[in-house]
Amino acid sequence: MAGANPENGAGGDDPSRRDFIHIAAGAAAAGAAVTIAWPLVDQMNPAGDTLALASVEFDLTKVELGQSVTIKWRGKPLFIRHRTGAEIAAAIKDDNAPMRDPQTDEVRHKPGKAEWLVLIGTCTHLGCVPTFGGGDYKGWFCPCHGSHYDTSGRIRKGPAPTNLAVPEYAFVSDTMVKVG
């Protein structure tokens, strides 16, 4: 570094002082560039009003046995499925079957509420909305790239890496859930 400096040794200056000024000025400019760049990058993250719309309440009495309702939560579809006994039995029967993302049916619903399945309705592959009743496992089937989910929303076949996500939610009463 110092050897490349043409002023090296001239006038008895300590060459390291000039190097220090160069490095300090460069570092200050780089720091300034980053502090300017960050707001330009971060402005693309969710804005305050988007973050504020984070939870939704839903009345379960609207969903008959064997039906499901799709509502919008944070811009995404949310499946609220009222499962039949046969669907629950099919899900429990497969608890030990080989799966990409092994989970028992029990951990995918609230304790004692096996008939209610609340899932984020976007395929974990590339975000399409799966339809119910299709596929090899009689659960959800994603038409985009052929992912098959079972009646518990677990991935059984196709490219999706994980089970349909269960959002954070709670029963505020016997017939009311709050998601988010």
């Binding site: 993250n45 969710p46 988007t50 811009g75």
Partner: peptide, 16 residues
């Protein structure tokens, strides 16, 4: 999330 400007493809995404 950064690309979308939210939790899904929405108005912010369309704008950018």
């Amino acid at each position: 999330t950064w690309l979308w400007g939210g939790f899904a493809v929405d108005n912010a995404t369309l704008n950018r």
